Amino acid sequence: MRKLGVLFVVLCGSVLLAGCGGGSGSTTDAPASMEGGAPAATPGFRVQQAPAREQAPVPDNGPQVTDRKEVVTGTVDLTADDPIAAAQTLTDRVIRLDGRIDQRTENPGTGDDDPHANLVIRIPAGETDAFIDGLGEIGEVTEISTNRDDVTLQWQDLDARITALRASVDRLRDLMARAANTADLIAAEEALADRQAELDSLTGQRRYLDDQITLSTLTIDIGTTAEKKGDTGPANFWDGVVDGWHSLIDWLKDAVVFAGQALPWLGFLAVLGAILAAVVRLFRGRRHRSRTTTAVTPPVGSVGSATPEAAAVSAEESGAAGKPGAADKSAHPTDKSGGPADESGGSAGE
C-alpha cells in the first residue's frame, strides 16, 4: 500500500509540474498528451495481437493444393511389314522427345520364324497420348492398354520425411559444433550418421519416384502383318511344287532326326531281346534234360523183379516163339490179303 501511495504522489506531482510549466498552451496539449499517452500504453498490446489475428485465417496446410502425381504405364501391340524398320522409327521418335530406350529386342526372322521386335521406352508423361496416337503412321495398332497410378500421397509423405530429416541433420551438426566434451561429440556423430543414412535412402526413393512420374513407361511389341505370316496357300502350280518339295525336305529332316533319336532305343531293345532269348533257351534246355532223364531211368521197383505188365509182355513173346510158323510170320511181313508175303515160294520149296 505504501508503494502504491508513493507512486500516486509521484504521478500527481509530475502532472502539476507539467501544468505549471506549460501555461495555457500546455493545458490544451495536456489532454492530447494524455489521450496520446493512454493509447501509447495500450498500442503495444494491440500491436502484439494484430499479427496473430492476421495470421490465423491464412493457414499453410488448408488452402495449399499439391499437383497430382501419376505414374503412367502401358503396352501397345503393333504390326508392320518390316518390324525391324518400325523399331528404328520408334527409336528416332523417342530420342526427339528427349526420352530413352530401356530395352530393345529384335529378331530378323528365319525360315521358320517371322521377324519380330520388342521395345521398352520412356517418354515424357505429357506426351504419352500424342505418341500413342502417332503409332498408326508406323503400322497397325491391334491393342492398347494404359494405366495411371496416383502416387500423390506417397510423394508427399517422402517429401515431408525428407524435410524433417534435413532439419534434424542441421541441428545435429550444430550440436557437434558446440559439443563441450568428447562423449557428446561421439553421441552426436552416431545420431548424425543414422539420420544421414535414412535421409539418403528417402532421397533416393523420391528421386526414383520423380523419374517414374516424369517419364511414362511403354512396352511396344511389333510383329509382322497377316499377309507375311504365310496363312494363305500356294498361288499356282509351281508354287505348289516348291511348297511340296520344301515339305518333303522338312519331313526327311524330321525323319533323320527321329532315326537318330530312336537309334539308342533300338540298341537298348536289341540287347534286352538277346538277354530274354538267352533266358528262354536256358529254361527250355533244362526242361528237355529233365524229361530225358525221366524216360531213361527205370522205375524204383524194377530192380531184381519185373513189374506185372513187363511179365505179361515177356510171356506173350515166349508163347509166340514156341508156336510153329510164328518165326516165319514174324520174319516175313504179310501182304494186303493178310497171308504170308512168300507163300507160293514156301510151297515150292516143299
Rank of each mutant, 00 (worst) to 15 (best):
202 L>N: 09
178 R>A: 01
281 R>E: 02
313 V>F: 07
265 W>A: 01
62 G>P: 15
312 A>G: 04
284 R>L: 10
307 T>D: 11
73 T>R: 15
143 E>V: 04
183 A>G: 00
102 D>L: 12
24 S>L: 13
132 I>F: 02
65 V>A: 06
276 L>K: 09
289 R>T: 09
225 T>V: 05
143 E>H: 11
324 P>L: 03
13 G>C: 13
309 E>G: 11
23 G>C: 00
243 D>T: 15
221 D>Q: 12
38 A>Q: 05
199 L>W: 08
209 L>C: 05
291 R>F: 08
138 I>Y: 05
163 T>N: 04
162 I>Q: 03
231 D>W: 10
295 A>H: 07
246 H>Q: 04
140 E>P: 03
26 S>F: 11
82 D>Y: 02
217 T>Q: 06
315 A>G: 07
79 T>I: 08
135 L>Y: 02
7 L>S: 06
305 S>C: 08
128 T>V: 15
325 G>V: 15
67 D>H: 06
301 G>D: 14
77 D>W: 10
313 V>I: 10
68 R>Y: 04
14 S>I: 12
263 L>R: 09
201 S>W: 09
348 A>D: 15
8 F>W: 14
321 A>S: 12
107 N>I: 07
71 V>H: 08
254 D>I: 05
182 T>E: 12
272 L>P: 02
51 P>Y: 05
300 V>R: 13
287 R>V: 02
196 Q>P: 02
176 M>D: 00
256 V>A: 04
228 K>V: 01
244 G>A: 14
136 G>K: 00
113 D>E: 14
112 D>R: 12
333 P>R: 15
344 S>E: 14
339 G>T: 14
263 L>P: 00
294 T>D: 12
312 A>E: 11
319 G>K: 14
183 A>P: 00
102 D>K: 14
285 G>Y: 12
111 G>R: 13
245 W>K: 09
73 T>F: 13
278 A>D: 05
311 A>Y: 04
101 I>Q: 04
289 R>Q: 12
162 I>W: 03
205 Q>N: 03
220 I>A: 01
263 L>A: 02
130 A>G: 06
40 A>P: 00
336 K>V: 15
318 S>E: 07
114 D>A: 13
314 S>Y: 07
230 G>M: 06
45 F>Y: 09
102 D>W: 07
40 A>S: 00
267 G>I: 06
172 L>G: 01
52 A>P: 10
291 R>W: 08
298 P>E: 00
88 Q>K: 10
108 P>T: 09
35 E>G: 02
231 D>T: 08
306 A>R: 14
208 Y>D: 11
244 G>K: 13
181 N>W: 01
350 E>Q: 15
115 P>W: 08
241 V>H: 05
120 V>M: 11
51 P>A: 01
245 W>P: 05
187 A>Y: 12
51 P>I: 09
101 I>E: 05
261 Q>K: 13
135 L>V: 03
83 P>D: 03
90 L>F: 01
327 A>W: 14
211 D>M: 02
159 D>V: 03
151 V>G: 01
17 L>T: 02
294 T>V: 06
152 T>H: 08
